[in-house]
Design a protein around this nucleic acid. Sequence first.
DNA 1: TCAAAAGTGTTATCCTTACACCCATGT
DNA 2: ACATGGGTGTAAGGATAACACTTTTGA
Lengths: 347, 347
Amino acid sequence: MAPEVREIDHVLPARAALPAARAEEPISVGLSAVIVSVLGDEPMVAVVPNRGAHAHDAALPCGRFSPRQHKTLEAGLRFWVRQQTGIELGVARQICTLGESPQEEFPGQDPAVVSVCYLAPVRPEHCGEAGDATWQSWYAYFPWEDWRRGKPQCLSEVIEPRLEAWAAIALEDCADNADHDGLERSRRLRIAFGRDGATWDEEKVLERYELLCEAGLAGDGAEVIQQARSVGRLVPTLTHPVLGDHARVLASAIGELRRCLKCEPIIFQLMPEVFTLFELQKTVEAILGPHLHKQNFRRLVESGGLVEPTGEHRLRTGGRPARLYRFRRDVVLERLAPGVRVKAGRG
Amino acid sequence: MAPEVREIDHVLPARAALPAARAEEPISVGLSAVIVSVLGDEPMVAVVPNRGAHAHDAALPCGRFSPRQHKTLEAGLRFWVRQQTGIELGVARQICTLGESPQEEFPGQDPAVVSVCYLAPVRPEHCGEAGDATWQSWYAYFPWEDWRRGKPQCLSEVIEPRLEAWAAIALEDCADNADHDGLERSRRLRIAFGRDGATWDEEKVLERYELLCEAGLAGDGAEVIQQARSVGRLVPTLTHPVLGDHARVLASAIGELRRCLKCEPIIFQLMPEVFTLFELQKTVEAILGPHLHKQNFRRLVESGGLVEPTGEHRLRTGGRPARLYRFRRDVVLERLAPGVRVKAGRG
DNA sequence: TCAAAAGTGTTATCCTTACACCCATGT
DNA sequence: ACATGGGTGTAAGGATAACACTTTTGA
């Protein structure tokens, strides 16, 4: 073949001459990181102060991908995270790529942005110094996801009634095109929020957040906080700090973490080298909600070959000294989906 | 805030003045689609003729994302797929985003490419006219993944011996830095290919492909085809047609499909509106490999509420007429992970 | 008549769930 | 002493895997 044929061609074999395919169109590629850890039984995410134009209190660590400087997307991510938080990431897994169109008001001025988003678990012992970054409980952003003390108040008292109303309105307004909005809304509600006999699925974090946004209950959030205050009782407000588009990314990341907790040993990337089974359970529960009672959880994890005792013990646990355990790295050779196989649903 | 503050800032809050963050650097964003279907018990992927410089016989349908023309990444994807194959996509799920650095030989000439890749299942009845595209069995690219007739020959006779050798060489060469290459290699081999007592995990398609590439057994492929022929018997060659980087994408997509088959009703996006349980089983087996015998599969899927009988029957099945079934869309309201819960492993 | 596929029924086994109960430490 | 968490045993229940067997068609 002729030498002037360009590498790019194997990715774009056909119709490269169409206007849609001009290379000159400037696109910038962003990288964002959801850096999670569990500190003192609380699931945390690293956020950095936001200096942008929007009324967001904080943002996820992020930056622009520069192919000249970084060989891979992940290398770029590590660079920005190191820069902004001082954290040296271990593993990072891609969760999604979002496209954001340029603002209508300033056409041609902003390059369009595509954001590649990552989930990066960090052990608690590496969370000490984090530069400008701070750790924030992720339930501060999504209080309805926190079932550790039973069903959250804000769900029953604020979210559910208002979502029902929102679905009902749609039913009246467009009763004719049923499968489009009306029926769809209440159906989505049932699925995402476990209404009406359906079960709450802790993995559907993004679905729930998107419904709340559509219903005006999350997103910019101002309206909701007022609503919550007007109830007159102590009601958790929805979305204290505002993350803007990054809230969607955080929601995806939480969902993904909850999902893969069950079939991969990813939980051990959030644990210190040695730990007690109780600590492990608390960490799992921080992420998923309460699930198993002690005895069964222990059996599950020990007889499942996920952990092995170190022989050491930990004193001052509040009770009897506890055996210390470590992750048994060989599980991945023996079992097929070596996660914490807690059953989705109550426990 | 001042009006000249740009929208982009909320994505890039910090250190925007660093050289790494220049907006002028040209990056092009590609979109690729792995369009899968199951035609006559064979899992297929849509490929288009490759007009590029490389010796690839074909490529996945793909194109460049143009934010001016398409509101979202998915809209862009649909555009290119329609253009190149005539197929109107139903659902499409993102599977990964790959970064590809510019070629060293032509510095500054090629804009760097980031590819966002999608998996799109298509029903067999929509596969008739596909423009320039053709349907290719995905096992043509990855014959070692096809366990429908037992363990594939090419695995035992070509791949396994050569991979073992490849791992052994590394062990000798660098016996000192054990955890880096040597031990790593044989460990990865065990995990990906189920060697040495470990079980074959059908979901690890990408891991296997990457190992084969590293070992020189896949990728450009020429060497392997020679090897396979030299055996003298009828041995399936590895990677007949060559897809270049798109093979990685295809591998990811197959893995993802196999994964989510088990916990989502995605299989029904590959089935016609009505079908027999046998057809359903054949489709599942085409994707995963053989797993359950008939009776248990039927019970699983029927008592699991995934399907409901239509009341109709299909004649000329080769045997007794079979009941026709349809997908019960309400499962998603009742069950938590409503997939075809076939156990990973033999059946 | 036979092969092939559709169906029915039953049993053994494993895994999960749930409950009851004892142990060791710090306050 | 008692609260708190650590740790053991065991029985009930449900889901799955494996088996054997009958039915109905087309060639």
